[in-house]
Design a protein around this nucleic acid. Structure first.
Length: 569
RNA sequence: CGGGACGUGGCGCAGCUUGGUAGCGCGCAUCGUUCGGGACGAUGAGGUCGCCGGUUCGAAUCCGGCCGUCCCGACCA
């Protein structure tokens, strides 16, 4: 490949409004262009990297016995109605009608269609199965952002396992975990495996694969000491018990004019410190109002609430709804004596006495509350959000909270989809067995962007050898010089013949431009051929990652560079 | 969807307050000089100022509506 003929539109300056480092670099180095919010064109270099990513993932999926399929990206509504998701997934599913008026969807995931294929499984002897594909997913994201990290159209490697029982699912799940570890290892990621919320997918277990990055959107609690790691959506910590005053408490209402917040009540004469207050929130879970109680100085982790209640749609109640329900405005709410609304409470409130909370009467609070005695709590749940510095639940060392990008996610799905699609096989005893499913995803272009997040410096992208669009660039300093051009051509041809992916920068540009572009595009090895070197029979080899330069005799440069590339692949 | 900002040659921006010839840098084309770390000179091409409507003799500029994009909050690979 000759640079002068390739279309690699590098830019001198950073594009505007590009916050994520990977986005900025991918645009500037001529890998991607935006068509619309969340929709990107991949240019030549990006396609070459994407192809390598896919090859790596495919190799590891094949290694665990996966079979590659390719399912349609456009689905009739019936398939989604069968699973119930036509109505439950909401606006994230792109929907339209075809010319006959048939409801149609663009696939945001493929559980339904894989399950429908699985209906042809008929015998337990055929299980287990692991099926996968690389296919475009469409998701009408409320807010696409950060370039390729969050888009509305992307390639996903999704795989699905079908097993006879939980033990089989565990095997498939662990096989995927191992495959993912190998894949992300090969991509050069410092991997974080975290417990995660199962969210909308349902099911019994889920592990997210994360890589630390400033551009990430997920927060993960990590223990440097024992390795505990969990998405903030599920993370736990051990916080010291609070000592309450001895003796029975007596509930007593008192006026608190103007007090609206926890902080107000802390400052109020006769108020209470935040950790002796009960914070009262009201959520609408589906259509049912639920009061949510936490210690005054703790924050609710909404996903924990959603998971604990098995709720798909959940939102804070509006002020008017709260007034209608409880007769008071936020700021004066409390659950003491409330019986007509379901009350859930964070575990940290269990056993607490002499607490202060709202009176459900504007401008009044109550003190002397014994939570278990005075409030009808229907369930005690882990609802609070962990904070940095709190003790690790496993070993007690302080947790840190890191920003991360989710690069893979594996789920134990259960039988939701196999039941919905009547997937069943006959067992050895002639009885019917409904297979249990797992589902496993890797976002290809997100991984491409994440790799750039991890592998870059001030000058540009620094591809690892196995992802680079080209392994070597031969920079011809004076392509108009005959001896130089001839020497360079020999190097290029030699490398190509040795099976090295090489691009020759034969552009009529000043050397500085070519050096800068080679670094921006991120090609791991640069061989510089110029009149000065050629005169002395030398070429210069520069390693992108380290900046290391060596002069190598022209006669040896092909062999030496080829060896270096092979060693780094 | 709530909050904030922006939309002017391919890219990055100024001009708008105070209405009157559309400008700068980069990039691009041609020629020359130069060229082992983002060169210089000369000449030149390229814009219905996001769209629609209104005000006005006259709108990039003022007013209204719409669309698009980005950032901050509720979702996910």
């Amino acid at each position: 490949m000759r640079w002068s003929q390739a279309f690699i539109p590098t830019l001198r300056d950073d594009p505007a409004e590009a916050e994520a480092a990977s986005h900025r670099l991918l645009v500037r180095a001529g890998y991607i262009r935006q068509l619309a919010a969340g929709h990107y064109t991949l240019l030549g270099p990006a396609v070459r990297v994407r192809r390598k990513l896919i090859r790596i993932i495919r190799e590891e999926m094949d290694a665990i016995g996966g079979q590659e399929f390719l399912l349609p990206a456009m689905h009739p509504a019936e398939v989604w109605q069968a699973s119930g998701r036509w109505s439950s997934v909401g606006d994230e599913l792109f929907r339209f009608t075809d010319r006959r008026g048939a409801d149609t969807a663009l696939a945001m995931t493929h559980e339904e269609v894989f399950a429908s294929v699985a209906r042809e499984l008929s015998s337990y002897r055929q299980l287990p199965q692991v099926w996968y594909q690389f296919q475009t997913k469409f998701r009408d994201e409320p807010r696409p952002k950060a370039g390729l990290l969050r888009v509305r159209e992307f390639t996903m490697k999704d795989s699905y396992s079908f097993d006879l029982d939980e033990a089989g699912l565990d095997v498939a799940f662990e096989a995927h975990r191992r495959a993912y570890r190998r894949i992300f290892g090969r991509l050069g990621f410092d991997l974080l495996e975290v417990d995660a919320s199962v969210g909308m997918m349902g099911g019994s277990g889920s592990v997210e694969f994360m890589v630390r990055s400033e551009s990430g959107e997920d927060l993960v609690a990590v223990c440097a000491s024992c390795g505990y790691a969990a998405n903030l959506e599920t993370a736990r910590s051990t916080i010291p018990a609070t000592d309450d005053p001895a003796g029975d408490a007596t509930v007593e209402r008192f006026p608190t004019p103007g007090v609206r917040t926890i902080a107000d009540l802390v400052a109020f004469e006769g108020g209470a410190p935040a950790d002796r207050q009960v914070k009262t929130l009201v959520y609408l879970v589906g259509n049912e109002p639920v009061m949510v109680l936490l210690r005054g100085d703790h924050d609710l982790q909404e996903q924990k609430l959603a998971d604990a209640l098995g709720a798909a749609d959940l939102r804070p109640a509006h002020d008017e709804e709260i007034v209608e329900l409880l007769g008071a405005h936020p700021g004066s709410l409390g659950a003491v004596g409330v019986t007509h609304v379901r009350v859930v409470a964070d575990r940290e409130l269990r056993g607490r006495r002499h607490m202060t909370t709202g009176a459900n009467l504007d401008d009044h609070h109550v003190r002397g509350v014994d939570v278990e005695r005075d409030i009808e709590v229907s369930s005690w749940l882990d609802l609070r959000e962990v904070r940095a510095g709190e003790p690790c639940p496993e070993c007690g060392e302080p947790l840190s909270i890191d920003r991360t990008i989710e690069i893979g996610h594996i789920f134990k799905l259960g039988r939701t989809y196999t039941e919905a699609f009547d997937v069943a096989v006959l067992g050895p005893d002639g009885g019917e067995i409904v297979p249990i499913m797992g589902s496993y995803g890797i976002g290809v272009e997100r991984n491409l962007a994440a790799a750039v997040e991890v592998h870059h410096d001030e000058a540009g992208i620094v591809w690892p050898m196995n992802l680079a669009p080209w392994e070597v660039v031969v920079t011809i300093v004076r392509p108009d010089d005959e001896a130089t051009a001839a020497a360079a051509a020999e190097v290029v041809d030699g490398l190509a013949a040795a099976g090295i992916e090489v691009i020759s920068d034969d552009r009529d540009e000043r050397p500085g431009v070519k050096f800068a572009d080679a670094e921006l595009v991120g090609i791991p090895v640069r061989v510089t051929v110029g009149p000065r070197g050629v005169a002395g029979g030398q070429a210069e080899v520069t390693v992108r990652a380290t900046g290391e330069r060596t002069d190598v005799p022209l006669a040896d440069v092909v062999e030496e560079v080829a060896a270096r590339v092979r060693a780094a692949r």
